[in-house]
Design a protein around this nucleic acid. Structure first.
Length: 722
DNA sequence: CGGCAAAAAGGCATT
DNA sequence: CTTTTTGCCG
């Protein structure tokens, strides 16, 4: 293995193959190169069989790329090596072993929509009001428990007070329903694998022996369950290599525990620790800005990235009037830069997917090619979900959740009454809807409905038999035709129906690709469905040309020559909900750090003086993260000072001077964002945002004593200070 | 039972 | 502003 291009630390990381190893890899420090070379080194120089290596990545796309890059380095095959995400790995393990836990090996994987409908069902059955108990919160509660490996029984026992007591009961219901359906949600994939290993030591030992060398990427974003799983697998050989950067931990909201990486040396006292602090990606100005921002976090181990790339262009500041103006400025700069860079070397990063709309509109108008990551989810479309539900039922007829979706789709005269009866029957006897239909003659369902139900069961059973001998594409065609789904759409002749048909055709390009890579077998349908369930938004990014638009979260691990970070306003980024929570604010700052360090050459920082949010115009102060960037790194210097609304350096000339939004109240006094005011009751404060129009304009004011208040501009008893 | 229109609700980041 | 739910009528 040729390691001559590696620095000292990188070499050490690659060659320290035995025992626990922690690689603290700063942004752009060549982490992926180190990982791929390390794996290649194991295979070629240490003669470790491919089947004894496991590498866990954050996305399926990263897994694919890693396999390709390792294959390019060596002559041996990499087929037997497991490179996958936590979830894909668990699906694979459970597929062969979950019967030990009483589930069917042809289990279904629930998507978030399915989860929601299960919870809604539970609420209905318990006669609870979904307004009082938001299904989202309940799903969140259940997910938290599962990430902490707390089973329903334990959750009930530990619940101290309402609503935890109630939610624990509902968690119990939920888990029972899933079990009866042989359905697993995403969190179950991890939790049940651990449970399997606890219950069946022989199975665990098999995988311990199999995975003698374990690698985990993005270790700072693992949750407790994932941590436990890795601990179990690595317990025998202790060849565990984890890579991460605590400054890039951005998934706490879904259970990631930064302690996993911080405590690694306690878990493995013999661990070797290597720091990669040499950055190969960004120019000095960009890196200095990122370092300056992240230093504002108090809860971190000091660390400073170095770069060999001197200077580079300064950061550029964009201030626009509206979100539309912001998009236009971004487009203007892209047109300028297009001489030097290809579109695919540029990216636009935002905090939330909702912000993409204005960007997208402007891009369409100006004819710049772009690709969006996430957001509009292809697989969330009704017709795709219907089709997937058919496939899920063909594989696992006991999946009531999917079965309910298709029992009357397309319309075949089976109404809610009939479905209710089947469900009630199922609950009483413990059998699935599918099985219940066979007894439907006896539970008070009208004869006509019974005939239709029988026809459906017959159809599904035929499809299930066929599915073992045909490709997925053929199966999809069978489903669409034999159910009459396509026929109904074709007869509709509306634009909408037409686009649905197009989407289904589009779906078949996915199945064709899958069929090309996979042989026909009993496993085929299961493999297809679990692949589909686990595709993430980030997996959609392919190399084709066009400017990339995505959330900052989705940008982790990627790099671009030119990066625009847009919507840098208080309340947008950092998000309104975290501004008064120091812990969460630090996570938000880490997200800023991730976004900044994506850029190699050019970095634009953009905000708008006002924008539409939920149908209302809002004005927000500039993001505090902007003020944390030293002035001298920015084009024109001092561009981020609070009162400066000057425009950027090299953008199109047509811009008009920008002015902050001003409100005049009934007494004729004007207020602007950033003004210091004094309130009769709340004391001193500063105006952070102006929203709404006309008489209903509101001010968000941060008071020193009582925190943030939203007041009507016209009537608030406030006076301007200074 | 099915279809349409009006009303209401929800609204971050994701495997 | 969008998406989902509800309610009414043929």
């Amino acid at each position: 293995m040729d390691l001559s291009l590696m620095n000292k630390e990188q070499k050490k990381a690659i060659q320290s193959t035995e025992g626990p190893l922690l690689i603290m890899a700063g942004a752009g420090s060549g982490k992926t190169r180190v990982l791929t070379h390390r794996v290649a080194y194991l295979l070629e120089d240490r003669d470790v069989p491919a089947r004894n290596i496991l590498a866990i990545t954050f996305t399926n796309k990263a897994a694919r790329e890693m396999r390709e890059r390792v294959s390019a380095l060596i002559t041996e095959g990499t087929q037997d090596m497991w490179i996958s995400t936590f979830h894909s790995m668990c699906v694979r393990i459970l597929r062969s072993n979950i019967n030990h836990l009483g589930y069917e090996n042809s289990f279904s994987i629930l998507d978030p929509t399915d989860q929601k409908s299960v919870v809604k069902d539970i609420l209905k059955r318990r006669n609870l009001d979904p307004k009082q108990h938001n299904p989202r919160n309940i799903i969140g509660f259940i997910s938290d428990k599962k990430n902490q490996l707390i089973r329903p029984e334990q959750s009930i026992a530990e619940a101290a007070a309402y609503p935890d007591t109630l939610y624990s009961e509902m968690y119990h219901d939920y888990q029972q329903i899933l079990y009866r359906n042989s359905a697993l949600d995403f969190d179950d994939l991890i939790m049940l694998t651990i449970e399997l290993f606890d219950k069946e030591p022989k199975v665990l030992e098999y995988y311990q022996n199999r995975f003698q060398y374990i690698h985990v990427d993005e270790y700072q974003d693992t949750n407790h369950a994932q941590y436990r799983l890795i601990t179990q697998l690595a317990a025998k050989y202790r060849n565990i290599c984890v890579v991460g950067d605590s400054d890039q931990s951005i998934y706490k909201f879904r259970g990631a525990d930064i302690a996993n990486i911080l405590n690694f040396e306690d878990d493995y006292p013999e661990a070797v620790v290597i720091k990669l602090e040499q950055n190969y990606r960004s120019s000095k100005n960009i890196l200095d800005a990122a370092n300056a921002v992240i230093e504002n976090n108090t809860e971190r181990k000091p660390k400073a990235l170095r770069t060999a790339r001197d200077g580079g262009p300064k950061l550029q500041n964009i201030v626009a009037d509206s979100e539309r103006g912001e998009a236009e400025e971004v487009v203007g700069n892209i047109l300028d830069l297009a001489k030097k860079y290809s579109h695919s070397e540029m990216a636009i990063l935002y905090r939330t997917n909702a912000q993409s709309r204005a960007m997208e509109d402007t891009f369409v108008k100006s004819n710049i090619p772009y690709k969006m990551v996430g957001g509009i989810k292809f697989y969330d479309r009704k017709e795709i979900k219907d089709l997937m539900s058919y496939l899920k039922v063909v594989l696992n007829p006991n999946d009531d959740i999917s079965f309910e979706r298709i029992i009357n789709t397309p319309k075949r005269g089976i109404g809610p009454k009939t479905v209710d009866k089947l469900k009630a029957h199922g609950q009483a006897t413990g059998i699935s809807i599918f099985e219940g239909i066979k007894e439907s003659d006896f539970i008070g369902i009208p004869k006509t409905a019974v005939v239709k139900l029988m026809g459906l069961v017959d159809l599904l059973e035929k499809l299930a038999q066929k599915s073992k001998f045909i490709t997925i594409t053929e199966l999809v065609d069978e489903v669409l035709e034999s159910t009459g789904y396509i026929e109904v759409l074709e007869s509709e002749k509306t634009i909408e129906a037409r686009s649905r048909i197009e989407n289904l055709d589009e779906f078949k390009t996915v199945t064709r690709e899958f069929d090309r890579d996979n042989e026909i077998s009993d496993e085929l349908l299961f493999a297809f469905l679990s692949d589909m369930a686990l595709v993430s938004d980030q997996d959609g990014i392919e190399d084709d040309s066009g400017v990339t638009m995505m959330t900052m979260h989705a940008s982790k691990g990627l790099e671009f020559k030119v990066v625009f970070i847009v919507g840098l306003e208080e309340g947008i980024f950092p998000s309104r909900r975290v501004i008064y929570d120091d812990k969460e604010l630090e996570e938000e700052r880490r997200l800023m750090y991730v976004a900044l360090t994506r850029a190699e050459d050019h970095l634009f920082l953009s905000r708008a003086n006002s924008r539409m949010i939920f149908g209302k115009t809002e004005s927000n102060m500039q993001s505090r993260f902007l003020s944390e960037i030293p002035e001298e790194l920015v084009e024109g210097g001092g561009a981020f000072a609070q009162d400066d609304f000057s425009s950027t350096g090299s953008a199109p000339k047509k811009r008009t001077p920008k002015r902050s939004r001003v409100v005049t109240n009934n007494s004729g006094v004007s207020f602007a964002i950033g003004d210091k005011v004094s309130h009769k009751k709340f004391g001193d404060g500063i105006i952070s945002a102006i929203k709404g129009e006309g008489d209903s304009q509101e001010l968000d004011i941060i008071f020193t004593k009582v925190g943030v208040k939203r007041l009507l501009a016209n009537f608030a008893p406030i006076e301007k200070k200074e």
